[in-house]
Design a binder for these strands. Structure first.
Lengths: 194, 194
DNA sequence: TTGATTTCTTAATCTAGTTCAAGTTTTTTA
DNA sequence: TAAAAAACTTGAACTAGATTAAGAAATCAA
């Protein structure tokens, strides 16, 4: 399947588009192959693009004032990512985005969004549903960060994303869980000897 | 202004509705006066209603397995709240909602949503924008919980919500910041003597 | 393929924030 | 308006997780 076909199939879970609408949409997109380590967005830049992952894995992260990286989100196949606030307001991004493995992404520029909504209002519905689901995930993450210990969060992570566990380094998982790599190592050791 | 007028005025920031559309929308709503302490949703129930705060303040929180409360969100005037996942899937709610002070809310039932979207598609746009903004806030909260110390989070909170600081108890602010009331008390003492 | 770099592990020491407990102030209720 | 309940404060003891450091294992680059 081509990337165009992949994203259209993905959309069909949420909205039904006719051929003309599909074509209009895919006409706004560009496919990009992204090598491992490539930066798609740097903190401080203005975010002009939204990324839809066809395959591979991206990370969205910030670097705090002590130089520590904090991974806010991993984005695997069929996930969208960008710095939404920066993209909407055209102000400098708080987040950086890069590829953790070789990836294939579709690019949808923010500047095309109002045109898309005007031409195919079904995309208002699509993004309404997409964002609705994203909010549910964010609530869950906030809840789990408040209720669970580091070990519990790690176990949830391995259950929820068994594939990610293989794909990305422990250092990155630790960053996502908001603990140090050293402490994650101890947690894993403890779990293994149980 | 009546509650109907208030919510219509609020909507006009995002979408332009004619009289007929306004009327259709307000016809789906009910106004409710909520006394301090009233439970609008209990963890475990199925969430059937969405609340829009006209005035007052609600809290959305969970109770963990140790019986500790964690406040996920405060909702003041012009904020929406509900347990979105429960409402969308009609499964038991993870969150509870109650009123921290006497409040006035508009109620929009989940079961009316598809009808609303069908009759007035502009509401797809409205909720798309609403959810978009909510995601921006969630990202910011996640980032701050990862990057900042308890004291820094408290200072941000007081800057961002100076009014809430007056309105709700320190116990609740501590819960929102994910620290104990004792530790918040110490932070405040430290700040005061500086 | 080897040397360099990065990642992971282990252990000692440290600290931000928790827990427990007791006293004080404020708010609620009858 | 008095008494009960809830919220806030303070301090001592504790702990989950951080920091530092050094070695081992894995990965990468030439």
């Amino acid at each position: 399947m081509t990337p165009d076909e992949r994203i259209v199939q993905y959309l069909s879970r949420y909205i039904k588009l006719d051929k003309k609408e599909q074509h209009f949409f895919t006409g706004l997109l560009e496919n990009q192959e992204v090598k491992k380590g490539t930066h798609l967005l740097q903190q401080g830049e203005i975010c002009r693009l939204q990324y839809f992952v066809i395959e591979g894995c991206l990370r969205t992260y910030t670097v705090d004032e002590h130089g520590l990286e904090h991974i806010i989100q991993f984005s695997q196949a069929n996930w969208w990512t960008s710095d939404l606030y920066s993209g909407l307001t055209q102000t400098p991004a708080e987040h950086s985005i890069d590829a953790l493995v070789h990836s294939s992404v579709m690019i949808l520029p923010f500047e095309k969004m109002e045109w898309l909504y005007a031409e195919v209002p079904k995309f208002e519905r699509f993004f309404r549903i997409l964002y609705q689901n994203a909010i549910v995930s964010h609530f869950r993450r906030t809840r789990e960060s408040m209720e669970l210990t580091a070990e519990e969060r790690y176990l949830r992570f391995t259950e929820r994303y068994p594939d990610l566990q293989q794909l990305v380094s422990q250092k990155h998982i630790a960053s996502y869980l908001n603990i140090t790599p050293e402490f994650l190592s101890k947690i894993r050791n403890k779990i293994a000897h149980r």
